[in-house]
Design a protein around this nucleic acid. Structure first.
Lengths: 345, 345
DNA sequence: CACCCTTTGGGAAACGTTACCCACGCACAG
DNA sequence: CTGTGCGTGGGTAACGTTTCCCAAAGGGTG
């Protein structure tokens, strides 16, 4: 009766014994901490390699750090988020940190569950992407662990933020459509009632940018907003409503690419040709938008840069939790494609 | 000088003191372990609620479990994977387990990094989705931690697998096209050289299913496979090659929806109408496929069920690491849409 | 030569939780 | 009345790592 037995994991003690030093010494080498001579470092590193030792993050977490960063994504299906994620992982690739994603957060309860789970696992920092939780909850999270909030305007003394200038983005698009000769430019927004969110969420900022741009172009009379939701279904319904208008708009600026997809579907169904009969534009420059046969005019948010900045700020905050919070605001760019053209004569 | 100080986290000791019991008792209640009377449970639970106590997963991991499950996704952009993920999280939603995703694994090195990170964090089990690592590496992972491999054929004594029957799926599609009257049905596959992968990866199985179905329909002469990659670019290039054939196929069966996207793009560019001039079909039934204006005929893999089964098997294996490995094979269904029609007369 | 500082190394106590085992009290059978 | 067994509860030693502190050795300064 001699089972091969679970080969016990090699620990810091094994390394110390093998290198003939103390565990303290090994720990110092692992963390590049002060108090280890070059010879000792070499000796320990050799032992680590020979034994194939890897520190157990869970145990490290009990005293120090877990070298783990959590990222919360509201919707994994939204093709814009992978861009941000790439920016984050690229920035972190040469550090000791490892990123994990908390999935499926499409409501306040789920967000709370995921963020709590991250805190309970001793993660060293977390990045929240477009969270919908109330501000107070975000502050509570941030006071427990270094936090960066992405894609939500309005700042706080306890967390850093990275946003894209949605007002400018919306202006770019309205300007583009106006340049093409459109006057009746409609907008489909995500319906929002909560006052904080109206001030902080990107969707509200886009609608606001649309309004401002229309006014500054002297098109205040033509402002026409439909409130649905940032989903394909929302776009479909919004388009239906716009089609029912006595004076149909000549261009529809959807607040997100996914919404524009629904709009395109409704227009296809109605037998309208895009952009011949009506122009359509989105926001986010997702894979959908760049896909040839669709070729949707959109606004690019530089997701990669957003993610990179978020990761950088988080590392800085982990290094110094007391540092003054920073707000990074990036500028979007217009990506004209084939769904926008001058209005029909 | 009296800073508000980081309010120290509530620990099991605090709960024990507040409820006037031992920490052992609290631990038993937390884990629903044997040896606690109903009164004691009630008392402890009340204390937990009053103090807002949440156990620290990192500390639990040192002795017992971390209640954490890791999921490795090869490509977060592939719209098929969220389906699987939903299946997993739905199955786990009422348990104490929390899922975290390891992002960005598009190579063997990255896969190794992510799986090691999961093991080092003491995760209780991991689900690998369509991993490309060599079989030996998968076995090493599985011997360190309960593992379920999804979307990879061929089984092992140390891990469970969940797959979809890709051979059947390909047959369904070929049958559908043949029923419409097509004979020159081409296939675009993901190029593969590694012999193990040829046997185990879904792409190879699909190509194999295509060949078999063609033969059994008496179309052996018409077998025509282009080897590129499962990307949009791969589909684009594959389509170009097929267009250059002396006798052009009347239908193209792409091994994945994303490939079919590239095919559609190439055909649009070439001025061909789909399905008037040529039929196109994909595989995976992604959001792309179901999107109205595209409406791609595809094969549905029941991603939700795949994920649910994977989670179930993992829980079973966590409960009993010695149990015999299980292979679950699910059946795909055909989803005919508007990109397939009878060949031109 | 005495003193102090710096460098190098290690011993031991945490960190928060669970697993193992033992003690107590009670009911029940012999 | 004495075991025996079960239901209940707790004491304590892990788990693997880091942090705090102290000791010894070496080198410079007065």
């Amino acid at each position: 009766m001699e089972p091969p037995a679970q080969p016990r994991r090699v620990t810091i003690v094994d390394v110390a014994r093998h290198a003939q030093v103390s565990t303290t010494a090994v720990s110092k080498v692992l963390r590049n901490a002060y108090g280890a001579s070059p010879e000792m470092r070499a000796k320990v590193r050799r032992a680590i390699d020979e034994l194939g030792y890897r520190p157990l993050a869970a145990a490290r977490g009990l005293r120090g750090q877990t070298y783990t960063i959590g990222v919360m994504l509201p919707d994994i299906r939204n093709p814009f988020f992978p861009e941000i994620l790439d920016g984050i992982t690229d920035r972190l690739t040469d550090t000791d940190y490892q990123v994990f994603l908390g999935p499926g957060c499409n409501g306040e309860k789920e967000e709370a569950r995921v963020t709590e789970a991250m805190i309970d696992r001793g993660m060293d920092g977390i990045i929240l992407i477009a969270p919908i939780s109330p501000r107070a909850h975000l502050q509570r999270i941030a006071s427990a662990v270094p936090t960066v909030v992405v894609g939500r305007h309005g700042h706080s003394p306890v967390y850093d933020t990275v946003t894209d200038d949605d007002v400018t983005g919306a202006s770019l698009m309205v300007g583009h459509l106006a340049d093409l000769g459109h006057r009746r430019i409609a907008h489909i927004e995500h319906h929002e009632t909560d006052p904080t969110r109206i001030a902080e969420m990107p969707n509200a900022q886009r609608a606001d940018g649309y309004r401002r741009a229309m006014r500054s172009l002297g098109l205040a009379e033509e402002i026409d907003i439909v409130s649905t939701s940032y989903t394909q279904q929302g776009g479909y319904e919004g388009a239906k409503k716009l089609l029912a208008r006595p004076r149909r708009p000549t261009a529809v600026f959807a607040g997100a690419d996914i919404v524009a997809m629904g709009v395109l579907e409704a227009f296809t169904e109605a037998g309208l040709s895009v952009p011949g009969d009506i122009s359509v534009a989105g926001y986010d420059n997702t894979t959908f938008a760049s896909f040839g046969p669709i070729s949707l005019t959109s606004v690019d948010q530089a997701g990669h840069e957003i993610g990179g900045n978020a990761a950088r700020l988080l590392l800085e905050r982990i290094a110094d939790r007391k540092k003054a919070p920073v707000q990074v605001k990036l500028s979007p760019t217009l990506v004209p494609r084939r769904t926008t053209a001058p209005p029909p004569a």
